[in-house]
Computed example of a mutant assay.
Amino acid sequence: MPFINERLDANRESIEKDRAASGPVRVSRFRFEPDAVMSRLREQIVGQPEALTAMEAMLVRVKADIGEENRPLAVHLFLGPTGVGKTETVRLIAEAIAGNRDGVCRIDMNTLAQEHYAAALTGAPPGYVGSKEGHSLFDPDKVQGSFSKPGIVLFDEIEKASKEVVRILLNVLDTGRLVFPSGNREIDFRNTLIFMTSNAGALDAEAYHHRYQHGWRRWLGLRPGNGQVLRDSALRRHFDPEFLNRIDQILTFNNLTDNWLEALLDIELAGLNKRLARKQAELTLSPELRAELCHGYDSRYGAREMLRAFRQRLEPAVARALLAFPESRQFEADVHNKEVTVHQYVE
């Protein structure tokens, strides 16, 4: 988009003039603050200290604006099972930087499993219907961002895309540009944070840990591995070395164990209370109900398991209480014989 590029160049020249006039004062062109972004991430993402540390390092580097000029600002691949915070991490970064969780250009790679779907990214080749229009799944505004805000792109479940689609991304990751086959359009990724998620190797790692729990190694007191070898093997099966070599960092998200149930519960309750605040209402949970909601948690489904418990068991009872007591502002949820009830809070 020539207009956007002209504005970027104009803003860059303006800041450079200000720097020259004011002396050696280093001013970042990016307005986001890494500490503010990380505060939001640490409030919402649990059990992933290594991944969050890596995100903090990436944000600081981007803020300082010392990266290569002819590559995306950052390229990260998130590995791990479902429901552990991979996609949520990207959405929270978008919310903190762009002011909107939908500020990320998300491409569901599951829909690009066939080779001919590559045209959904780059437009139809010359001579085919739609080649002149140059339609693409990419939203240029979200991809390119602005001079003060990086664009954010998420390739979700990258391992499900066809080989042809993945090959298209090679040039994007290497040079930060995507040129359409028609030759009359280009999307610039040099001002973009690129994230990819994958479940590759997650099932193999889960099976490995299951065998450990029921095998002789546990009885001998041997510690299990972290499954990283299995994940590395799965990556090599799914992706060519030249693709993996263009990724800045591959991060593995941990399974969410019982140690994080209380934290997950508090996060979901805070989200529910945020929605209830629009109805001038607030909900508290009895200790018995908290224990009940955590009971039977299946770590295979991560945080989504807790969300399902809220939607299926707690929210219907909350809705009935809101309709029954429209003037009440304080409610307490309890459980008796597996039945969740919500009533007006009485001190």
Rank of each mutant, 00 (worst) to 15 (best):
T192Q: 07
F32H: 02
A309T: 12
G215Y: 04
E88Q: 12
R177N: 07
L323T: 12
K279Y: 11
M1F: 02
R190E: 09
E95S: 14
F3R: 13
E288Y: 00
R320D: 15
L178C: 12
T111R: 03
D139P: 06
A36H: 02
E268P: 06
L170C: 02
K163R: 12
A119Y: 03
D65C: 03
L220F: 09
N259H: 09
F243R: 05
I158H: 00
H76N: 08
L79E: 01
H210L: 13
S162A: 08
T87I: 01
N199Q: 07
R300D: 06
N171R: 13
K132S: 14
E133V: 13
Q280W: 00
D188S: 07
T341C: 04
V153T: 01
D9K: 14
T89H: 02
P241Q: 02
P326A: 13
D188Q: 02
A21W: 01
S39D: 12
N255Y: 03
G130D: 10
P316H: 05
A317M: 10
T175P: 01
K132T: 11
N259W: 00
P24F: 01
R106T: 12
E327D: 15
H209W: 09
D141G: 02
E327C: 09
D141Q: 12
A321N: 09
Q48H: 05
G201T: 05
W219T: 13
F180W: 03
F155C: 03
D240G: 03
L323S: 13
A317G: 10
W216N: 11
G227M: 10
V27A: 11
A51S: 07
N273I: 09
D258G: 05
R61A: 15
A51V: 15
D298M: 00
D188P: 06
L235S: 09
Y301H: 10
E56S: 06
P81F: 02
P140F: 04
P140S: 06
A21D: 13
I152N: 01
A277P: 05
T89D: 03
R290Q: 15
N226K: 08
R217P: 05
G183Q: 07
E288V: 10
M109I: 06
E206L: 13
L173K: 06
Q228R: 13
E6W: 02
R177E: 12
P326E: 11
F30G: 09
P150S: 00
I194Q: 04
V27H: 04
M58L: 11
I247W: 00
P326Q: 11
N70T: 12
L265I: 05
Y117M: 14
S146R: 08
F253C: 12
E262R: 10
N110I: 01
I194C: 08
G215K: 05
L264I: 07
E315R: 11
L289C: 13
Q344G: 07
A57L: 10
G47A: 06
C105V: 06
Q312G: 03
D9G: 02
N199T: 09
S148T: 14
D334C: 11
Q249D: 13
K142M: 12
F325Y: 15
E164L: 13
F30M: 06
L220W: 07
K279Q: 14
H214L: 11
V104A: 15
K132N: 12
D174H: 08
A303C: 08
H343K: 12
L283T: 04
D298V: 04
I152R: 00
D35Y: 00
V25S: 10
S146L: 06
G225Y: 01
A98I: 14
L77P: 09
